[in-house]
């Protein structure tokens, strides 16, 4: 059964599965440790006592490397793999993770599970145009004002639902490992409960790419003391799992996304819609404007009514409004000698053959009005009767009426018999 249609075949809203769209994808990272190999140290605490275990990060050695692939590989709690940055990349320097989702997604959350202490400051951005431009999604910092010039936990109102918030929650240095940062895109947004009817929030959660910028490391404050090198080798960013939870964006017109011929991820559009996000109507289905599907209404696109006489049509808003928002399609290039918005009558010089339905290829016959006996070339749409000159008769005006005879004048072809 197709989730986009009910058991009676009627269209209904359908949405792709909820997935971790980051899983298995490549993440572009600005500064990963191991090239060249370098020492790093892990601090553990037992009560007041801190111990430091040092290791080597070596990109050339699979056992000692911490590549970006570990961000989105299978997250096995019993065997954590951690991506790790170079040591002591401290503000104003930062480390950037960039993830391309491959198409528009409606993001529900972005989460990061850390192997190191969580950053003191970090920012999450999104792009809606495949990385051309970036919009802030969320900031985390113990010093929101100083780091991002934003108020801590600013209120979100109906007027600024697309505002990125800065919060100091989740910015503790502890736990030293295993800390989680999870950003929920709709948290605290006033219209979240009515997402279906909120184009602003639908736009807000839409992303093609996610970028995470680690802006400031937490430290114990020993990075400038004696033996600062050892201390600095203990400060780095390390993440075991980057997740971007959400759904492939298909505007309610598809239940899954598939790879197209070029390998791009696209929606498997139903309801006569088209485009990577099912965000327009497919050709010839312009009888009403495209709309996103809602829980109540599938808003499928409807084919134009052209009685099989046209392959193309266009939408006309005025007609649509005049019809009470029922039908606005206008057929283009009516064939088979038909005409009208729906190719539903015969064009000038032709008349209906009532023995055939209007959708028949030969539903319109030529009038065939006599070049001299008829006063014009256009005949009656339903009878085929041509307009005859005085004294002339016949459906095509090709003979003189009773009491008349043919003359030599093409202007008055039939004259009364004296």
């Amino acid at each position: 059964p197709d989730p986009c249609y009910d058991e009676n075949g009627n269209p209904r809203r359908c949405i792709p599965d909820f997935v971790n769209s980051a899983f298995g994808k490549d993440v572009r990272v600005s500064r990963t440790c191991g090239s060249p190999a370098a020492r790093y140290c892990v601090v553990t605490e037992k009560g007041e006592e801190r111990t430091r275990d040092c290791h080597s990060c070596d990109a050339g050695d699979p056992k000692k490397s911490h590549p970006p692939a570990y961000l989105t590989d299978l997250n096995n709690p019993h065997n954590l793999t951690c991506w790790q940055s170079e040591n002591y990349v401290q503000a104003p320097q930062n480390v950037t993770l960039t993830l391309s989702l491959g198409k528009k997604f409606e993001v529900t959350y972005v989460s990061l599970q850390f192997c190191s202490p969580r950053p003191e400051s970090m920012a999450i951005y999104k792009s809606m145009d495949y990385g051309k431009s970036w919009v802030p999604f969320q900031f985390y910092s113990t010093q929101c004002k100083k780091m991002y010039n934003r108020q801590n936990k600013a209120a979100i109102t109906k007027q600024n639902e697309q505002e990125a918030i800065c919060t100091d929650s989740h910015t503790d240095m502890h736990p030293l490992t295993g800390g989680l940062i999870a950003f929920s895109t709709l948290d605290g947004r006033p219209s979240a409960h009515d997402f279906d009817n909120s184009p602003v929030l639908q736009d807000w959660v839409t992303a093609t790419d996610i970028k995470v910028i680690f802006s400031r490391l937490h430290t114990f404050g020993d990075e400038n003391e004696d033996d600062s090198e050892l201390a600095r080798d203990s400060y780095f960013y390390a993440v075991s799992d980057l997740q971007v939870g959400g759904r492939c964006k298909c505007n309610g017109h598809a239940s899954k996304c598939v790879k197209d011929r070029e390998g791009n991820l696209v929606c498997e559009c139903k309801h006569n819609t088209a485009g990577p996000e099912c965000d327009r109507c497919k050709p010839f289905h312009y009888d009403r404007p495209w709309q996103r599907a809602t829980a109540r209404e599938a808003n499928e696109c409807v084919a134009c009514h052209c009685n099989l006489h046209a392959r193309r049509c266009r939408f006309n808003m005025e007609l649509y409004k005049l019809s009470g928002r029922k039908s606005g399609g206008v057929c283009m290039n009516c064939r088979h000698n038909t005409a009208g918005r729906h190719c539903h009558y015969c064009k000038e010089g032709f008349y209906r053959d009532m023995a055939r339905p209007i959708s028949h290829r030969r539903a319109c016959k030529a009038c065939d009005c006599h070049p001299v006996g008829a006063a014009g070339k256009t005949c009656n749409q339903t009878t085929g009767q041509c307009p005859c000159k005085d004294g002339v008769t016949g459906i095509t005006c090709n003979r003189c009426a009773k009491g008349y005879q043919q003359s030599r004048s093409p202007v008055a072809p039939c004259i009364k018999i004296p």
Binding site: P371, V372, V392, T393, Q406, R408, P410, P413
Partner: peptide, 24 residues
């Protein structure tokens, strides 16, 4: 009674050249 159809050959097109059908 069958009515004879208009005979195009009988018409005098002098002064009405512009009205004359192409194929006449």
């Amino acid at each position: 009674e069958v009515m004879p159809t208009l005979d195009m050959a009988l018409f005098d097109w002098t002064d009405y050249e512009d009205m004359k059908p192409v194929d006449t």
